[in-house]
């Protein structure tokens, strides 16, 4: 995986991603039901962080409200459960999240920096409370979702979405579209001046980055037998995505994978024995990466490669 994206042909990258996913899926199923759930969570975070990276990593617009896409997908799937089949409701959840992002993109993307961060967070909270109010008004304060697919089935789907999200980030990063987004990140005004259609690129990336989280939200709500709005619009989901992107490194398809693996590995090591230590360490790592490795683990790897190449030459 690591070498793949450094080469010019995409085939090794695709092969590495697919083989990696298949190995983790097989290993987790072999290790038993608890590890199947751990793998499901791993792929969920990879898919979410890759999607976040597609917009925020590439453009530098830091969204703190990515959970809104996850929540919209989950809401659509939960409210239509046993009314329309899952093979239809899951993609519709992704579509609904994408359409929502498209509608709000124009006003939201007018602001930048800290204002954008606060606005995205506020928007997610706004949608959460509107849906909570709607649910309670119609006397549906919670929903039970019995008869959902087995964990293994959900694992296959979420793993597939993680693979697709990884490949999208990889290919967009290599494309003209990705170069345009990078130009927005480096200097939006200059990019616009030289003819980069910044608004169109930003809106497209913003909408595209919501589709997979919408589908993941729909699938993950099937994992739980209980649905309520507060659970699927939990802002912690947004915070975790940003944390994984910072630690792993955004703007490169390998970053979110490293970030998700690192955070889940740390969590699995510590949550049962020393949960407080987990949060302390996470805080320290976060500060450490922001201060000393702003491009995350992937930035460190690249730096190391450059310096060893320098020594070799």
């Amino acid at each position: 995986m690591t070498k793949a994206s450094m080469t010019h042909t995409p085939i090794p990258a695709i092969a590495a991603t697919l083989i990696g996913a298949i190995l983790i899926v097989s290993l987790s199923i072999f290790m038993g039901s608890y590890w199947t759930v751990v793998a499901l969570n791993l792929f969920m975070w990879i898919a979410l962080t890759q999607s976040w990276s597609l917009f925020s990593g590439m453009t530098g617009y830091i969204s703190l409200g990515h959970v809104v896409a996850y929540g919209i997908g989950a809401y659509l799937v939960a409210t239509t459960f046993k009314i329309i089949p899952l093979w239809l409701s899951i993609p519709l959840g992704g579509l609904a999240a994408g359409v929502f992002a498209l509608i709000v993109a124009i006003p939201v993307l007018r602001v930048r920096g800290p204002y954008f961060v606060i606005l995205t967070f506020g928007l997610a909270e706004l949608v959460k409370f509107i849906l909570l109010y709607t649910e309670t008004t119609f006397g549906k304060s919670s929903r039970l979702l019995f008869g959902a697919p087995k964990t293994e089935t959900l694992l296959y789907w979420v793993a597939a979405l993680a693979v697709v999200a990884t490949l999208i980030t990889y290919f967009v990063g290599r494309s003209r579209f990705g170069k345009g987004l990078a130009a927005v990140r480096e200097d939006e005004t200059a990019a616009e001046t030289v003819g980069v259609p910044v608004t169109r690129l930003k809106v497209l990336a913003f909408a595209a980055s919501a589709v997979i989280p919408g589908m993941v939200g729909g699938l993950m709500t099937m994992r739980s037998t209980y649905f309520d709005v507060l659970q699927v619009f939990n802002p912690t989901i947004s915070f975790s995505i940003v944390t994984m992107a910072i630690i792993g490194g955004a703007g490169d398809a390998r970053g979110p994978i490293l970030g998700a693996l690192f955070m889940l590995g740390l969590a699995e090591l510590l949550w049962s024995t020393a949960p407080q230590l987990y949060f302390i360490l996470l805080g320290l790592f976060l500060i450490g990466f922001v201060l000393f490795a702003p491009n995350g683990m992937i930035g460190l790897i690249k730096r190391r490669k450059r310096s060893s190449a320098g020594v070799a030459s």
Partner: peptide, 19 residues
Amino acid sequence: MLKKIAQGLALAAALSLPT
């Protein structure tokens, strides 16, 4: 890498047994 992850996860499980 995957082998190391599997070993790490197995070790995590062993370490985290409460008793």
